[in-house]
């Protein structure tokens, strides 16, 4: 099935310089590629390095193109396809605000406990839960909170790293 759409998680090591994120995003919009999730932060201040974790989808030919196009950008150090290069760990963090009282409030706290979400802020009528996990786990938790007074969700998008001893 050469034309089947696949989802890949890419790690991109870049120089932390102005415009580098715009270059990456512009590449995706300009060439019509998908971005399902994108996170970026500096990982080495001394060497001015940032790491971008990108989740994208496309046919195998398109995924190869995306990697080649990313690698062609001048400030890009390395492009790694975590999906094809062996097992990797992928996590996302979310902050979830739930407002309610009575049974609903108790129930939200109980479910948060099951999902190992922590309350990081609390008032008489609200909680802010912090949770880390796979995107599916966060989706499940958010869906359960909906009838219990969900008002706000903020998610980081996926960060990922390969398993084992080898670095990028």
């Amino acid at each position: 099935m050469p034309d089947q759409i696949q989802t890949h998680t890419l790690s991109v090591l870049v120089d932390n310089e102005p415009g580098v994120l715009a270059r990456v995003i512009g590449l995706f919009s300009g060439r019509g590629y998908n971005i399902e999730s994108l996170t970026v932060a500096e990982i080495d201040a001394a060497r001015r390095l940032s790491r971008i974790t990108l989740v994208t989808s496309g046919t195998p030919m398109v995924i190869e193109q995306i990697k080649a196009q990313l690698d062609r950008l001048v400030p890009v150090h390395a492009v790694r396809d975590l999906t094809t290069e062996g097992p990797h760990v992928a996590r996302e963090m979310a902050l979830i605000k739930v407002v309610g009282s009575g049974d609903k409030r108790v129930e939200s706290l109980r479910i948060a406990d099951i999902f190992r979400a922590r309350a990081v802020d609390s008032t008489i009528e609200s909680f802010v839960f912090e949770m880390t996990g796979s995107p599916e786990k966060i989706d499940a938790f958010v869906n359960l909170m909906r009838p219990l007074g969900l008002v706000d969700v903020s998610r980081t998008g996926i960060v990922a790293i390969s398993r084992g001893a080898k670095g990028i």
Binding site: P18, G19, A22, R23, G30, L73, V74
Partner: peptide, 14 residues
């Protein structure tokens, strides 16, 4: 200028 020319250059600098 760097924003406008980003997609139409190999690279650009400010």
């Amino acid at each position: 200028t760097t924003g406008i020319t980003r997609p139409c250059t190999k690279h650009n600098y400010l």
